[in-house]
Design a binder for these strands. Structure first.
Length: 755
DNA sequence: GAAACGGGCGCCGTC
DNA sequence: CGCCCGTTTC
């Protein structure tokens, strides 16, 4: 049962409005998630919408989960029927249902930014492009910017030869992706948008279904996302957008605050609701934030207030070095913990990930539990990416990125030369690398055939094993396990891989895949859409999950640790105590941002986000001297410290800069170096079966068939044997035919000629 | 073909 | 400083 009494008048107006277009300007800490979830509950309870008729877009997967769990507390409904997720997650879901119309293979794979970059590098290499003149990273951002505007290569008009080449590279890259059946992040959105645009039946179906569209963090949507929302809304559906222009901090990835103004002007017009009462922070904190953000021009305008009282002034300190800054943060955190503050209620925020090192060092040395967010994430670790690459190949053999990642990992004698030949062959035939191995001869072809044979064998296995068992099998059969057992410091990697198996286990339980094999396509229970059922396997779902939710590394349940993260990562979170470190010109605000138009204002919004994370106490700090690129450099004070009124700040050092400051108790470096290293026994059980028979071959009717043998078939043409199953006249061979694919043939029956 | 070595450059933020 | 990439050496 919904209790509207708990809401303030503005919140209540937002929740119960019957206007078609509504823009909620929700300041930091003003109860925006509460409004969104209560709005959904209201729509359902009043019978205005069914759970399946609501589409809600959130900024992170974590926010989506949070929203669903809060909603299920308010109403006893099946939230699984609801479409709540990130733009990317929802687009992925739609594309999986309509892969055919979207011109994608059923098991298309999603590339993260790293994968995309290596894919682009391959294109550049293949076409002999000078990477000095066309740096891969610049091509990457060119392509992504274009996609985020909804532009295909043919939509772009070059202004100079340089740009013409970039457009051509975009074209070639996209051809490569299409051939390999992979999509990058912006492609998920663009493909989905085009799907809706070009297929009236599909478009109208979803327009009929989603009568109510809700969007969180609207200020961080890009142009394409906005177009996607409008096409889904069509001519009748409702859009309820919640955002805060003062917290727009993602313009570097195409976010456009202009969407808010546009929406307000074109659609919402009079229906703008401002949530200005802040329930999070005390006045000193809130007024500091207000004063700072007031320096920005062109705001939609709003002023947060609270009735929580003054609280404490901000504690500001400048230390001599970044190490001492970290040490000071540690000491303050330690005494807070001693006073009884939960560790997880303390956050240390910084502008760039590089700053985490010094802070981590201090906490590690002192033995205070901490958790670093961002940086290298679980699904981005090399050992995990290796195993995922095998899984992706099992699902889609044409994924050349994954092929190249693991074809020689662990080392199996397939070198650069061989891969060059293979790439040439694939290019000539116009097929993927795996399909091209039939075109090669000699010893290297045998090795390649064995590799593909292993993949195909695992694929067979995947039909009968559950996902966690399959992953265990991959780790064992591919030799990854042995490799890391012999590798120095390989234990941690093996532990991570075990963690991957566990993650798959949990995933299967949550998604009800416990009793299905990894490859078995199941109609997703969460979908009550009879017109377009989603047929997915556990492997499909898990690989999407690994690509799309790699970022949401939440704290483990019940973990009480100090939280270390970038300001960007802290958006949407709140803590009792917040430290903002590195308040120096060039770092925060960051020098790179000063070069771009509006960059300083975005930095200020970032600082605004940082300040408004704090509920009770806020610390701001900087260092006179900071390590950068391994060198020490002198710094100057951040202008943001000058833009916060003095009345809200308590300086813990003289405000005039002095470089004589020195910390008495220095960090104990020995403790850092002699940190306990975990020496655990191998977590894997041995002796899992290996289905492949890579022995000395099979003799059938005067012909000796071996893995790697080149063979000719009347219908399929030339190919190479990638695996043999069984013996004698009963034996079957898996054969990779050039440009055709893998066929399983009975050697006693098929007319095969060894060549 | 693989491991070991060394030069050069980058760290702003990320679904 | 530490990662990535190209080169050397076995």
């Amino acid at each position: 049962m919904i209790n509207l009494e708990e809401l303030n008048p503005e919140q209540r107006t937002a929740v119960t409005t019957d206007e078609r277009y509504v823009l909620v300007l929700a300041g930091a800490g003003s109860g925006k998630t509460k409004v969104l979830t209560t709005r959904m509950a209201w729509l359902i309870e009043q019978g205005i919408a069914s759970p399946g008729g609501i589409l809600a877009v959130t900024f992170t997967n974590k926010a989506a989960k949070e929203m669903l769990s809060r909603l299920s507390l308010q109403l006893p409904i099946n939230t699984r029927a609801m479409w709540v997720g990130t733009f990317h997650g929802l687009c992925n879901r739609m594309l999986r249902s309509h892969y055919h119309d979207a011109r994608l293979p059923q098991s298309f794979q999603i590339m993260d930014m790293q994968d995309q970059l290596s894919s682009i590098k391959r294109v550049l290499k293949l076409f002999n492009i000078d990477t000095e003149k066309y740096p891969p990273k610049e091509i990457q951002s060119f392509i992504n910017n274009a996609k985020e505007k909804g532009a295909r290569p043919s939509d772009l008009a070059p202004v100079d030869p340089m740009e013409a080449q970039s457009i051509e590279l975009y074209h070639l890259y996209q051809q490569q992706c299409d051939k390999e059946g992979v999509v990058d992040f912006p492609e998920l959105l663009l493909r989905c948008y085009e799907l809706l645009r070009d297929h009236p039946a599909i478009r109208e179906h979803y327009q009929r279904r989603f009568k109510h569209i809700l969007i969180d963090e609207f200020q961080d949507t890009n142009n394409l996302q906005y177009k996607w929302l409008r096409i889904l809304a069509g001519e009748q559906n409702c859009i309820f957008a919640v955002g805060d222009d003062d917290q727009s901090i993602y313009s570097f990835r195409g976010a456009n605050v202009g969407n808010m103004e546009e929406f307000a002007r074109q659609y919402a017009q009079g229906n703008i609701i401002r949530l200005e009462q802040n329930y999070r922070s005390y006045n000193h904190i809130l007024h500091s934030a207000n004063a700072l953000i007031a320096e920005n021009k062109d705001r939609l305008g709003k002023n947060l207030w609270t009735d929580r009282g003054h609280g404490e002034p901000l504690r500001v300190n400048e230390l001599s070095t970044d190490r001492e800054e970290a040490q000071w943060i540690l000491e303050e955190a330690k005494s807070l913990i001693n006073e009884g503050v939960d560790r997880k209620e303390i956050a240390v925020l910084y502008r760039s990930n590089a700053q985490s090192r010094a802070i981590e060092h201090a906490f590690f040395s002192a033995g205070i539990p901490y958790r670093v967010y961002g940086g290298l994430r679980f699904f981005e670790r090399q050992e995990v990416k290796h195993v995922l690459a095998y899984l992706r190949l099992i699902n889609n053999l044409d994924d050349d990125n994954s092929f190249l990642r693991v074809v020689n990992f662990p080392a199996r004698g397939i070198g650069a030369r061989t891969l060059e030949n293979l790439t040439d062959a694939a290019q000539k035939i116009g097929c993927s690398l795996a399909l091209a191995i039939g075109a090669l001869n000699g010893a290297s072809a045998t090795k390649l055939a064995q590799f593909v044979g292993m993949i195909m064998t695992l694929k067979e296995t995947a039909k009968v094993l559950t996902l966690p068992d399959l992953i265990q099998q991959v780790i064992h059969d591919t030799g990854i396990e042995t490799f890391y057992q012999n590798e120095r410091e390989g234990e941690e990697r093996l532990e991570n891989l075990q963690e991957l198996v566990n993650a798959a286990q949990t995933f299967c339980i949550e998604e009800s895949f416990e009793s299905s094999s990894a490859l078995e396509k199941v109609t997703i229970a969460a979908n009550d859409d009879q017109a377009f059922p989603e047929q997915l396997s556990a492997l499909d779902m898990f690989l999407s999950y690994a690509s799309l939710e790699a970022g949401d590394n939440q704290a483990k349940y019940g973990e009480d640790a100090v939280q270390l993260m970038t300001v960007h990562a802290a958006k949407g979170l709140e803590f009792k105590v917040v430290f903002v470190a590195g308040l120096e010109e060039g770092l925060f605000p960051h020098e790179n941002s000063l070069k771009t138009h509006g960059g300083l204002e975005e930095e200020r919004r970032l600082m605004y986000v940082a300040i408004t994370r704090a509920k009770e106490r806020l610390y701001l700090s900087g260092a006179h001297e900071r390590m950068l690129y391994g060198r020490s450099a002198y710094t100057t004070r951040s202008q943001f410290l000058e833009q916060i009124p003095d009345e809200h700040m308590k300086w813990l050092c003289p405000k005039t800069r002095s470089y004589s400051y020195s910390q008495a108790n220095r960090v104990d470096t020995d403790a850092w170096q002699s940190a306990p290293t975990t020496t655990r026994k191998n977590p894997f059980q041995k002796g899992t079966s290996n289905l492949s028979s890579m022995g000395s071959g099979v003799q059938v009717k005067d012909q000796l068939f071996k893995v790697g043998s080149n063979v000719r078939h009347a219908k399929f043409g030339d190919g190479v044997i990638i695996n043999l199953i069984g013996q004698g006249i009963e034996a079957q061979a898996l054969i990779m035919f050039k440009g055709v694919g893998v066929k399983t043939l009975a050697l006693g029956v098929a007319k095969l000629e060894v060549i």
